[in-house]
Amino acid sequence: MSTRFRTLTPALTAATALLATLVVAAALLALGGYPPGDAFAALFRGAFGTWDRFVSFTLVRATPLLLTGLAIAFAFRARVWNIGAEGQLHAGALAAVAVAVALPGAHGLVVIPATLLAAAAAGALWASAPAAMKTGMGVGEVITTLLMNFVALFMAQFLVQGPLREDRGVFNQTNEIPPAAHLPDLIPGTRLHLGFLIGILIAIALWLYLTRTPGGFRLRAVGASPRAAEVSGRFRAQPVVWLAFLASGAIAGLAGGVQVAGVTHRMYEGLSPGWGYTAIAVALLARLNPLAVVVTAIVFGALSAGGGAMQRDAGVPEVWVRGIEALVILAVLAVDRSWQALTSRGSRG
């Protein structure tokens, strides 16, 4: 098999998976009694119809998915199954609001970095409990990170109903953060904020780390086979696992901080519609490549932005989009398996 074909495969897999998803989603929509053509057209118009729809909706929705997607991709590269990005995002958002509200008079150059650092630190802290349980006690991280998500959601609920509740006392939400803490707009006249650029810079940084540094090599080695990495005697797997947890948690926490500083300007119950879970689809479709996550996050941002339009214009419930996300994951897995079967047969024969 030619090397040229091999380098094409990741993009080809993603494209095939998306096509398969489209076909299955169309069939399911038809089964549900909705004309698939109308639904897809409405979705497409909602996501890409005008420049403003694309920038102020699709790219803005893509931003938390970009950051959480990077968090998942980095952890999964090390075979750390962090399913807890949702909880880490909530921890980050809470910390960001708490810090920003506590610094009312400060200049933006002080308060914005402080806010975002607090968010990253809180996300890392939230990930440290499952990390300690995995490395210290051998408890699998899948179930612990999942359980931590629920703890974070209820903690957020508790804080916005009680200690952090707005002074007006009308809604279950925090006070608005001071204007100095708002992230600046990236493109004037749109709602796209600095967070999107931060996401792209982190994607580049992670890609450089993974492909160009010894630390990145160690992380990929542990991901390929933790036992082999350990047995080789060159390095220990545990610090790598810790790094994967903490970096992943920090980036997911940052997603929460960026969302409150850039879009909502306050914290409330139900801040995230499940970005931490959608992020798994984002990362997998990108084949865990940080640069590709930028593209797949925009794809899922478009799904999210188009979902509302699909409900409004074609009467298809917006929750359909959640189902489509699951179809993407399954399609990637299935296409991947088929490719593996094909290529291994090819190399043997």
Binding site: I83, Y277, R322, A326
Partner: peptide, 13 residues
């Protein structure tokens, strides 16, 4: 994880 996400979505739909 995919089956869970999809099930929550499709049951809602």
């Amino acid at each position: 994880t995919a089956v869970t996400i999809g099930s929550l979505g499709f049951t809602g739909a």
